[in-house]
Design a binder for these strands. Structure first.
Lengths: 190, 190, 190, 190
DNA sequence: AATGAATGAGACTTCATTCAT
DNA sequence: AATGAATGAAGTCTCATTCAT
């Protein structure tokens, strides 16, 4: 309970002020406990960050796997993954904002673990792209690795500006991004 | 000279460790001077950050204006702006990595100035998109605001992973990203 | 049982790291219980230290009394006391190392109790020396108080360097120290 | 200046309370400066301790070398070294009390340096003893290594109890200890 | 233009101790 | 007899900043 509260409070603060600029005092003040309490639950500030990062990517990987196992064609899988990432902004709250930003503050060992999992997530998208190119669903000229980074750019950048409680809904944004990614901008193919 | 050296050293350190985790001592150590020197050139650490942020976006805005004044069609302007952002990774070095990350550490007034300039840059892309939709170059269904964020996602995300001295050249990446943005992924338009 | 285990673990840690640098957590970790357990058996960390100090000196005093009551001449009594102190290194393990070092961390009242017992131990040696001088066994020029400190120096210093499981046995060391104390170093008396 | 004051204050406090129990706050309070000042002069509390330990033993080694180069016989050299150690109580103040006690709190690397120097000091005494046995000045039965430890015990233990501003002067104590070490206690040699 | 010394606030962390269970 | 959770005081250390020189 207390541990969960500390995690939630810290995510909020990390989003607002960044990891380094957030003090343990800030975190415990928000929860209304003492510093000693924090250190009963976490060995260090870094351990807390690692906990947050690991839960986040583990959850994404799990849900990505469910999509990949669903046996659809490449396009549908890709659409589902884009939706997963956009919906996540609403469901997981602000963790995503912290996710890419603060890996720098993990110990080298922990950072390696997280980077490895990120690479796994990316590789699985790349495989979907590759499959789609081979099956003829996607254009032959696509470079799967770069296209994957482009897709991630479109989705992850949304964490920087998108407010899920604004006028544009999560579903609408997912739809627009999917459209952009699949069809591009030109009125006619060159 | 000294001032320029301090700026270069600090950009490198901000990239590696982040603004908060970089101390003035770190910066002056890298240049080989003492803290007093730093405070001769900068009123505060925040002023240094503001200097870096402002130079960066001012430069981008200048170059964007040159493109916009060149009187081409919307598609060509857009391609040029994408190229500008990608080439920048090579030309400006690592500043881009710092740019989005550290705005949080500016004073509210300075942050507002930077945000305003960022918005200006974005709005000008949005205008290009709008013009292209109206002229029929771009698809009628595009939402200019969201498409602009998608374009910025594709380009800015490259700062996270692209190494300009690797096997993929800046020109090649610009070309691939342009292709992705204009044509999307599908083999045939729906 | 548990109490004895806590005491043994703490002596080992006090030897290695010193009293202040040893935490209750260190002690209970070594025994494999939790802090609550410690506080069931001891009111405080200081009480534990006092327990160790008091047991140690009480034991020495008891054994010293047995020697003194044995009705031998001064020289033999002295030899026996030297042996007692040297043998103790093997029998009592490392407590001796803690004994002189950590009295500082007792409460003033407890420290006074221990100092009083130490003085008692020392005074009884001094009496033996005095008796020996009067009886003509020891040299007339000896100052009993200073000679006593010299004897204690020779024996107690052994705690700093002597390893009872090395090549030199406890018996051999006791013999050499006795020889040194009784006969000095010169080949001929001046 | 300030650095020297911090060192003096800390020696006093280490004697009274021990290294671990002395806080940086205690030290700077005694000098009347702030904690920041302390860390301007010393990288850490451990560095301060190392500084104290190294100065102390380096000074002893220098003075021991002067004695050894003076070309006297073994007995006179030994007497001079005993005098050196006893006089030191008065001249160097209380450092000696800290010297043996606190080596535990050095980093392993620094502790090794100090232990090496201690061993050098001890070895040089051992050589004097050996020379004296060979020249016939000292008894043939003496074991030089153990006799050296015995001598160090007599002298170093004095730091525990001797007050140089009491009724017994430094010169008198040196004389008594020398007498004890050379002639032992017995009225007649066995 | 630059230095060295100092400051004071605040950072992360440890720890002896308490208490309900 | 023992545990787990929590406390609050204090510890070591960092750091942006100032200022006399």
């Amino acid at each position: 309970m207390m541990k969960a509260e500390l995690i939630q409070a810290s995510i909020g603060l990390f989003v607002e002020k960044g990891f380094s600029a957030t003090s343990i005092q800030d975190i415990v003040d928000r929860v209304g406990v003492t510093k000693g309490s924090f250190y009963y639950h976490f060995k260090s500030k870094e351990e807390l960050l690692m906990h947050i990062q690991a839960s986040y990517i583990d959850d994404l990987l799990t849900r990505q796997n469910q999509i990949l196992e669903s046996g659809q064609n490449a396009k549908d899988k890709l659409v589902k993954i884009v939706e997963l990432l956009i919906r996540d902004i609403e469901e997981q709250g602000e963790i995503g904002k912290v996710y890419y930003r603060e890996i720098r503050h993990l110990t080298p060992e922990n950072a390696a673990v997280i980077r490895h999992k990120r690479a796994e997530f990316r590789d699985k998208i790349e495989t979907v792209v590759k499959d789609g190119v081979q099956s003829g669903e996607f254009r032959a000229g696509l470079e799967p690795r770069i296209a994957t980074f482009a897709i991630l750019g479109v989705t992850n950048w949304s964490y920087q500006w998108f407010n899920p409680s604004g006028t544009l809904s999560v579903a609408e944004l997912a739809c627009m991004h999917t459209d952009f990614i699949l069809n591009g901008m030109l009125a006619e193919k060159k």
